[in-house]
């Protein structure tokens, strides 16, 4: 691979690493480099470039819109959905208007959802955004809350990842102190999954997750 060869450098103040979110588009640091470049990988030649570090970020003040009641419900440990009074379709995640052409954007009505559902599918997460790295490995799950015509994404807890399988029953739980975020709820297996992977495959998944568990443990240990 072609590498940058530093010719001259002013390192950014280390504060910018943490202060990136406070960045104001300043040229915080720069390098003049030489690099083999060109339009095809078999025709590269050295060229000189100036590369700058330019931090920038922003705060969004965001409205949850007319489905705010779902998130307000989370704060009170109630799982809310909506129901179309015309066709009866139930939405969780909620929609303020029905999705069927024939219902002509009928306004839906709020209902409280049961705290049970079925796991439709899932992924075992081994990498993620900065904010989630210390939680790895975790299970990203799509669950159909009983009675809903949609599935909601969340975390499946309380089970080894290799033991999870689609189409099994889950209970929906609240964390102790909800914050008005979909992470306020999580799923737990309700009994033993009805289907199971072959033992050989389970062992392989377990092996594949070990380095991730070790990596996260090291990350946590080093603060």
């Amino acid at each position: 691979m072609s590498e940058d060869r530093i010719i001259k450098e002013k390192k950014p103040d280390p504060k910018w690493k943490d202060w990136g979110r406070l960045g104001k588009w300043e040229v915080a640091g720069w390098r003049i480099i030489e690099r083999d470049e060109g339009q095809r990988s078999d025709q590269l030649a050295p060229r000189t470039y100036m590369v700058i570090d330019r931090p920038w970020d922003v705060m969004y003040t965001h409205s949850y819109g007319r489905v705010s009641q779902f998130f307000m419900g989370l704060l009170e440990k109630k799982l809310m959905g909506t129901k179309c009074p015309k066709c009866g379709d139930v939405f969780c995640p909620p929609r303020a208007h029905c999705w069927r052409f024939e219902c002509k954007l009928t306004e839906t009505e709020w209902i409280e959802m049961p705290m049970e559902g079925t796991l439709h599918s899932y992924a075992i997460m081994g990498f993620g955004g900065e904010a989630f790295l210390d939680q790895l490995p975790f299970i990203l799950a799509y669950v159909r809350v009983d009675g809903a015509n949609t599935m909601i994404a969340g975390r499946l807890a309380g089970i080894r990842p290799e033991d999870v399988e689609c189409d099994t029953r889950v209970k929906i739980k609240f964390i102790d102190e909800p914050t008005g975020n979909p992470m306020d709820i999580y799923f737990e297996m309700d009994g033993v999954p009805e289907h199971s992977k072959p033992e050989e495959q389970k062992a392989r998944i377990r092996e594949k997750l070990k380095p991730i568990e070790e990596w996260v443990a090291e990350r946590k240990a080093s603060g």
Partner: peptide
């Protein structure tokens, strides 16, 4: 969806993984 799918730790590799997990099943 940044209100429902992203805040729970979702990102594209995870969504595609859940889609192929169902296909495998």
């Amino acid at each position: 969806d940044t209100d429902f799918d992203f805040p729970v730790g979702g990102y594209y590799t995870g969504y595609y993984a859940a889609m192929i997990t169902r296909h495998m099943y």
